[in-house]
């Protein structure tokens, strides 16, 4: 009796999917889809009407981009970075339309731990502030900041996901933080959202 087959890794699924293996494509999508949907939710807000569209179109784009994927980063990060781009694009369109449908406080649904309602509100306001900032930043800065703050990627992971040198990532983050700083300085209420410094 032979050894049981090793479970498929995201990397092996990505490689097979890149070669047109439809079975691997389906498995890979199911593997990365929760993170992609979560990314869309995080960037757009759960009530945003484009969340599902962004997630779905990101999945399509992911499959189309796989032939060029060289394993520079984890497939999940690659997938999430694609979702980030779609979500930011949707966010920019929304900004253009000047409609606000996505930043409602979702105290009742987003948390199940013991944090207080006040904490929930402050957390969602901070998320909203970041989302709004992302909608105003230049594209590459917005993408970099989103990968870092929204997805929590490290500097190196951001560099791999965006295929740019580490110093470029640093530069983009620095510029994005300058914009964040100006926003904080211009809006004192944002400072109130911050917990006291340690």
């Amino acid at each position: 009796m032979g050894l049981p087959a090793a479970p498929a890794t995201p990397e092996s699924l990505a490689e097979r999917a890149a070669h047109g293996d439809t079975d691997a494509t389906a498995k890979l999508l199911r593997l990365v889809a929760p993170g992609m949907l979560r990314t869309a939710h995080a960037l757009l807000g759960r009530g945003h009407p484009d969340v599902d569209d962004v997630a779905q179109q990101s999945m399509i784009a992911l499959v189309q981009a796989l032939p060029s994927f060289r394993g520079e980063c984890a497939p999940a990060h690659f997938a999430n970075s694609i979702t980030t781009r779609f979500a930011l694009a949707a966010r920019r369109r929304q900004t253009t339309r000047a409609t606000r449908t996505d930043d409602a406080i979702e105290v009742d649904t987003l948390f199940s731990d013991a944090r207080t309602a006040v904490d929930h509100v402050l957390a969602e306001k901070r998320r909203s502030a970041i989302r709004e900032l992302l909608g105003t930043l230049p594209e590459v800065q917005a993408e970099t900041l989103a990968l870092r703050v929204v997805l929590g990627l490290s500097l190196g992971e951001v560099a791999a996901a965006t295929n740019v040198p580490l110093n470029t990532v640093r530069s983009r983050i620095r510029l994005a933080k300058e914009a964040l700083m100006k926003r904080i300085e211009a809006d004192a209420t944002l400072l109130e959202l911050l917990e006291p410094s340690p």
Binding site: R30, H41, L180
Partner: peptide
């Protein structure tokens, strides 16, 4: 700015994964 970033990273990390619609999507 860094305080805001650090806290916002924790805020986003606390968001739940969107599982229910995965199959459909």
């Amino acid at each position: 700015a860094c305080r805001f970033e650090q806290q916002a990273r924790a805020d986003f990390a606390a968001l739940p994964a969107g599982v229910p619609k995965i199959d459909d999507l």
